[in-house]
């Protein structure tokens, strides 16, 4: 009779530590869900330092809100890498788009505060790269729709398919009210966004150069109430948030001094009367503390 294999004491300690961390995270996430009265919560997480991977409800589809802009960014760099779109190409800044539902034209209700520089260029041109920058850093809906027109929805989906990213469905640009009312929405899962960001971090999203440029843009994100709000000041986060009336998401790569980065996606959905709270920041803080605990820090 074969002797039962004995696990080395160090490995057993690591395994126990990971199991304990996972249990602790799970309990803490449930507490956050209840405390913030969330209708739904989806989390996906991968740590390049420990290779720890953890998720909660990570294959559930959520309204994408502005996280779909990550897929548009990916498609822009796909076209660029293939030589089909130069980043300096001029694009007419025009507030007129066609609904995917009835092909009728619609205009964005432009918020001058958030659209700032893009709005200022109305009637003139901006480069593809400038639009990509504003689409991510100030979450410009205007820039997003212009880029969706430039690359086309089928190319966005092709980019996702080529990189075998499941769980991101892009049908249209933003503020297409007719499509929204017809139930035609962009959707994401936590795992889908995690895969996309892991490829960007690992330099596998259309090559190292394109991935590096995408990371640079994501690092300039101006909205920091999500993942960064749960982290120490010194942390750098390459991320994209997404907010509409009943969802608040954030998906990003977290860079901390002295360790490899981790990728974190937090999707939340709440009743319209509740309003957005700090659930995303709370989950981000819990995960950071969990990792710090595992690292003995």
């Amino acid at each position: 009779m074969a002797k039962p294999q004995v696990e080395p004491p160090e490995e057993a300690a690591v395994r126990q530590s990971v199991a304990k961390a996972e249990q602790s995270l799970y309990a803490s996430v449930l507490a956050i869900r209840d405390r913030h009265e969330l209708e739904r919560l989806g989390i996906a997480f991968y740590d390049a330092e420990t290779t720890l991977q953890w998720s909660y409800n990570a294959d559930a589809m959520f309204h994408a809100a502005s996280t779909m802009k990550l897929a548009v960014l990916l498609a822009v760099f796909r076209q660029h890498t293939r030589g089909e779109l130069a980043l300096e190409e001029p694009v007419h800044v025009r507030n007129k788009f066609l609904s995917i539902h009835d092909r009728k034209p619609y205009m964005l209700d432009i918020n001058r505060d958030t659209e700032g520089e893009v709005f200022e260029r109305l009637g003139r041109t901006m480069s593809v790269e400038q639009l990509a920058y504003h689409m991510i850093t100030s979450s410009s809906n205007f820039a997003t729709n212009l880029l969706v027109d430039v690359v086309g929805v089928p190319v966005i989906q092709t980019a996702l398919d080529e990189l075998k990213i499941e769980g991101i469905k892009v049908l249209r640009g933003v503020e297409d009210q007719a499509a929204f009312e017809a139930g035609l929405n962009n959707e994401v899962t936590a795992n889908g966004l995690l895969k996309l960001l892991r490829l960007v971090e690992e330099g596998k999203a259309y090559g190292e150069e394109a991935s590096a440029r995408m990371r640079e843009i994501l690092l300039d994100q101006r909205f920091k109430s999500g993942i960064p709000a749960g982290l120490p000041q010194a942390a750098r986060v390459a991320h994209k948030s997404g907010n509409i009336s009943t969802v608040h998401h954030d998906a990003g790569i977290v860079y901390l001094e002295g360790r490899k980065p981790y990728v974190l996606v937090i999707l939340t959905q709440f009743p319209s009367e509740t309003g957005a709270r700090t659930a995303v920041a709370d989950v981000s803080r819990d995960i950071y503390e969990c990792l710090a605990g595992m690292n003995g820090g």
Partner: peptide
Amino acid sequence: GLNEFLLVDLK
């Protein structure tokens, strides 16, 4: 100016 009639984008 002549340039005003030549303003086009990537279309």
